[in-house]
Design a protein around this nucleic acid. Sequence first.
RNA 1: GCCGCCUUAGCUCAGUUGGUUAGAGCGUCGGAUUGUGGAUCCGAAGGUCCCCCGUUCGAGCCGGGGAGGCGGUACCA
Length: 488
Amino acid sequence: MAKTDKADRLKARLPRGLQDLESDSLRVTHATLQKIRAVFERYGFDPLETPAIEYTDALGKFLPDQDRPNEGVFSFQDDDEQWLSLRYDLTAPLARFVAENFDRLPKPYRSYRNGYVFRNEKPGPGRFRQFMQFDADTVGAPSVGADAEICMMAADTMDALGLQGQYVVRVNNRKVLDGVMEAVGLAGDEHAATRLTVLRAIDKLDRLGLDGVRALLGEGRRDESGDFTKGAALEAESVAVIMGYLETGLELPELRGTVAGAEGVAELAQIEALIEASGYSDRVKIDPSVVRGLEYYTGPVYEVELTFETVNERGETARFGSVAGGGRYDGLVARFRGEKVPATGFSIGVSRLLAALGALGRLEQTNVPGPVVVLVMDKDQTAVYQRIVSELRAAGIRAEMYLGGSGMKAQMKYADRRGSSCVVIQGGDERERGVVQVKDLIEGAKAAETIADHEEWREARPAQVEVPVTEIVATVRGILARHGLDGR
RNA sequence: GCCGCCUUAGCUCAGUUGGUUAGAGCGUCGGAUUGUGGAUCCGAAGGUCCCCCGUUCGAGCCGGGGAGGCGGUACCA
């Protein structure tokens, strides 16, 4: 009994939040990466790759007062008991690399990389537990000129991806937010928790609107599913100041009364001037509600958001969130070196971007044709078929001999399913005469549309030509050319 | 984590007030056609009705518990 009992059979299943990419998606992904890479190269960044695994402490992800890594990060212990983790972004590993090789790197050090990062969180639309990021950073550049450049590069990248007019790069400054916190009396360690709640509330402006944020600054808010989110419980005056900030932004009078706030406003003004001078004002905008992740950013922060609605196959509007983001992190390298090393950079969430575009049916197909399939008519003649394949390959044409065990009909079906442009057929009769049949499957499919009767369809052998074996390559080339294909 | 919805064939879904051998479309495979992909026709395979417990003469359907999926929300370094 060859069959395993069904109940005992191992179930093939993909862990949630992970994805298999088949040829179409992979080709789109590669094409996208290539477009991004071209922009980053043009800006003068050099490639750098670091491993997917780092020491957990290098990522800065230990739970406070605990001996084990934070939740949300995939971790395991090495045989010497040191904690290792899968990277959850590309910035922290870059900081490690720069710190480790600081003396021999040119400063500012400008590099880019793409790779998979991992987050052990609940997946959602456009949120995966393994996803591709494309990241660029300038390390060792203190001026906000570096930040302005990153914003412009973000815009150019989105343009290069064909998304002109369908995104916005939103810029803010953590110092401005610090200033606002100070203005409402939330400076100092004892208010850290409240500050977090307030910043998170501000971050939700685009999703919840002014009223939603106001609720979260006060008592709290009940969402559509009936869940209640506790608010920051601020005084009415404080709420008013923060709401004022969201409505008037950098014009808020209280802002300039604080050192951090004044600095942040000045930096944003510089960035805006640079953006303006280079003609990016339509794509890059100052937005006081941008917060970004709350750990290591110290100055300007930016975020790229798609400005169109994304709807899934069920017709529900799905939230994909921002597709890229970044900011200045002057303290990250310092963790390894003591001295401050100013740095700024951003990452594109390639997987999320593609998921969003895919949900909209906005991905262009790459349309790589299937290989030319040389049919195996006589199983004892595979050497002859293999030789034909080799000739086609030597001519730069994607080709293969049918390697399955089925008959001719199945082989034709196979070629059809592979999207092959044509097949090469040689039975005993053709072999004796030194010829082959070359069948154009694309032309054949067209011809089939007008033939309803199977007998006729079979007899007609549409789009099939008989040529001497010496002309196989030329004939196939002709068919590829006719359909505008290059065979690769 | 919290809230809501969902779970029947590979996929999308029917399934009567609880009643015999649980259905359809699509897909897959085979045949009509031992040497021709489409269309058509014929046929076949394919099911732990998510799991467990309970109610009942009898459960895909009712009750309880659990798991998984989707979405929202929280968190997201």
